[in-house]
Design a protein around this nucleic acid. Structure first.
Lengths: 102, 102
DNA sequence: ATATAGTATAGCACTTAGTGCTATATATTG
DNA sequence: CAATATATAGCACTAAGTGCTATACTATAT
């Protein structure tokens, strides 16, 4: 059994506890946060591939992420690395597509 | 007729053009980007309200946004303002809930 | 009553992402 | 050829972000 599926099962169990009233809302939220999928990091070329996969120019891609064109350029050239929230957005794009940011 | 609905109608028309083949994928993406909903700004207290509305502690909220607890604190105290990508995430939370970031 | 744990506020020092600008190169299209 | 869109590149500045520590306020449990 993979580590991932173990987490999933435990999480299901926690949701049951919540239904029965043994775990309140706030604690439940805490638990959910601990089960958040790890945020993946990207290399410069991976970012570029991700963008082109969605047929977006640097300008358009930047618009979706609400950042500047030059920032996207620096990511793709490896001059700068996207910080936490930016990485989160990149992960969302990979998982759910650009439209998920609309 | 509101400006918003005008944009919506024009956008629908563009999608039709796309279906008929008069507008290619790339151009379509450009168009979509221009129709992106404006990203709303938040005051310190608005950020705090948004977080509490979702029954999340500062630590949990930070985890969802993939940022640090102290950054969330500074936002809520008005010491710092969330940058572009962070604002985008806050907008997503308000529109689709915290779970949308999973 | 007091100890414990979770949460929130506050301040400090440092690092680096982010921004804006300009310039150049290259397709690509009219 | 001219013109537009796109991408690469470098520079200088600002401010967000991070990590840390300390304090205070709950609320719950012992």
């Amino acid at each position: 059994m993979s580590r991932k599926s173990i987490l999933k099962v435990v999480h299901e169990g926690a949701k049951d506890l919540h239904k029965v009233g043994l775990m309140d809302e706030v604690t439940m939220r805490e638990f959910d946060a601990m089960c958040l999928p790890p945020v993946k990091e990207y290399t410069a070329v991976q970012i570029k591939r991700l963008r082109m996969k969605h047929k977006a120019s640097q300008a358009v891609f930047a618009a979706y992420l609400n950042t500047s064109k030059s920032t996207v350029q620096k990511w793709e050239q490896g001059q700068k690395k996207p910080n936490g929230p930016s990485l989160k957005l990149l992960n969302l794009v990979e998982k759910k597509g650009l439209e998920a940011l609309s």
